[in-house]
Write a protein that binds this DNA or RNA. Structure first.
Lengths: 180, 180
DNA sequence: GGGAGCATGTAACGGGTTACATGATTGG
DNA sequence: CCAATCATGTAACCCGTTACATGCTCCC
């Protein structure tokens, strides 16, 4: 019985030795995984946590959040850690999946005007700049903790990725102008 | 009633004014869409074609393939073309979706050895080089036909994308060595 | 003879999303 | 007072995949 990559990603977040709630995991995913992988919907996080719990890969307990409410926090188990290590060390690595919607529109450029393509690319440029800045922000905001070197390397990689994305948008913009 | 992006992608393939079978569409997708978007499974292509047919966005007819068998070829209709143009011109463009599995493994680098990470990245490097070469091949093999300028631009973009991916893998490899 | 390519499709399944439901606390 | 944030979960739905089924032709 195998579990989806998203479950391993969550297990990965928990592998940095902390107790986290579903809500915490969502925020963490949004400020790390999001840049190079994906941030699952909160509802999926809750259901994956249930599955991981049922498999014995995590344990959970309730902690008081305030006077009236509790929240459920999760901790990775030894079996969970072993399964995660196994996944990193021995499982096949799928190729990256890229679904570049703005490019799909450019590919269909014969159906529209250069102005529309430019607008799409400008807006994608804003998005990429935003992602770069967010990745840069995530890199600087979190103090370099021991054991967190790899996430730091990947976050830096992500910032470079979006920087290059911007360069490539500009190249495309220039090429589209030439086509006119 | 909206249709998925994949359906528009297929409609897009048909928008270059040719009659194509499901099988043809799969081959075409593999040598164009695959580099920057995704190539749907053949089974999905057949079911999307049925949906597009039901919506009146394509028509189909059977043509003899050899003495014994027929094949069904599809042609975009005026309504299909109008819907596609509408999609390109007025629909919101989703941000690109990236699920970088090799990077997810690197992000979990604390769970394994540098040697394993290097192996993963080397293998990803081979994949990226392959994609670059395939994109380059697709660019040169298809003679520059009129009306196909945008696909050519996007294929060239894809080749650059994978070239940069290789550069970024090498940078990562260097950073991982430094971490040791 | 057998594998690769041509050609089309169905069924089962699962991963993941959106919408919905609920309710407390904090800060402008 | 109202929006945002904290916090958890269910249900419906759909996109897309893999596995399965079928059968012909071409070439080694």
């Amino acid at each position: 019985m195998s579990i989806p990559a998203t479950a391993y990603a969550l297990l990965g977040l928990l592998s940095f030795d902390r107790e986290l709630s579903g809500y915490d995991l969502k925020k963490w995913a949004d400020s790390s995984l999001r840049f190079f992988y994906w941030s699952p919907a909160i509802s999926q996080i809750y259901s994956e946590l249930k599955r991981l719990d049922a498999m014995g890969y995590v344990t959970s307990r309730e902690v008081p959040q305030d006077e009236l409410r509790n929240k459920r926090v999760y901790r990775i188990t030894d079996e969970g850690r072993a399964a995660l290590v196994e996944w990193v060390e021995h499982d096949d690595v799928e190729p990256p999946m890229l679904k570049h919607s703005p490019l799909l529109r450019v590919w269909l450029g014969h159906l529209t005007t250069p102005a529309r393509l430019r607008a799409i690319l400008e807006s994608h440029r804003v998005y990429a700049a935003r992602m770069r800045d967010d990745a840069l922000g995530a890199a600087t905001s979190s103090a370099p903790r021991p054991g967190m070197e790899f996430p730091a390397v990947v976050t830096a990689w992500s910032a470079r990725y979006y920087e290059r994305e911007i360069e490539m948008i500009d190249e495309l913009l220039a090429e589209i102008s030439e086509l006119e």
